[in-house]
């Protein structure tokens, strides 16, 4: 599913509501069959372990090596001692390398993350989701800093990841062509309200460009 809308329309807020980082001020939210606002402690973590979010690489810790930033996706499965030990001796290296291989960064696995470019960091954030294996994938502008070829690849990976576990991908996108190629349903938001909800097949690139108010 693609979320489209002008800047400030509420796309990121909607994604935040779904992953539980933004509490709703009114109404209820249902995620994977439960209301995240009613959960606390362990059951809350269990739900969050099934949902994976990728932001525009702002969630990475620059001082950590790439391998640890990718492994951070497994913190919901690891006991605390293993998380701590992994900072000394990286754990589960084969999976990390496989994930980085898919985004084309396997040779930078031990680089400090702050040394990478914006596009490379965005791909590290993708690799974090690949090792996490969530059922529901939330993506906030996952392709904004990537060139067209890498953007295609990134969305294909995210869509495949969600499909593998029988779940869904919700991505906010600003490139209409990308939205139509990789998503089956398009939801448009303006000032926090849904103004468009249609199957992708019924829309054209032109319709979406109109929606953004951009010249054709």
């Amino acid at each position: 599913m693609a979320l489209v809308g002008p800047s400030g329309a509420g796309k990121s807020t909607l994604l935040g509501l779904v992953n539980g980082s933004v509490p709703p001020t009114a109404g209820t939210v249902e995620v994977l069959g439960t209301d995240p606002t009613t959960l606390r402690g362990r059951s809350q973590r269990e739900l969050r372990a099934r949902v994976g979010t990728v932001h525009q690489h702002l969630e990475l810790v620059g001082q950590l090596r790439v391998v640890h930033n990718v492994n951070a996706g497994r913190l919901s499965h690891w006991p605390a001692w293993r998380a701590a030990w992994s900072l000394v001796r990286p754990q589960g290296l084969p999976e990390v390398l496989a994930a980085l291989e898919q985004v084309g960064l396997a040779d930078r696995v031990f680089e400090r993350t702050e040394r990478l470019s914006g596009g490379q960091r965005q791909r590290v954030a993708l690799a974090r989701l690949l090792v996490k294996q969530p059922e529901l994938v939330l993506a906030d502008e996952p392709a904004s800093a990537l060139d067209p070829v890498l953007a295609e690849r990134a969305l294909a990976l995210l869509a495949g990841l969600a499909a593998d576990r029988g779940g869904a991908l919700v991505a906010s996108l600003h490139d209409p062509a990308l939205a139509l190629r990789h998503c089956t349903r398009v939801v448009g938001l303006v000032e926090g309200r849904v103004v468009l909800d249609a199957p992708a097949a019924a829309l054209t690139v032109g319709d979406l460009a109109d929606f953004y108010g951009a010249p054709r």
Binding site: N19, G20, E46, L47, V51, N69, L75, S76, W78
Partner: peptide, 13 residues
């Protein structure tokens, strides 16, 4: 935290 990390894990990473 949003991805389900424990408090200790979130602090460590």
């Amino acid at each position: 935290t949003a991805m389900g990390a424990r408090p200790v894990g979130g602090w460590l990473y």
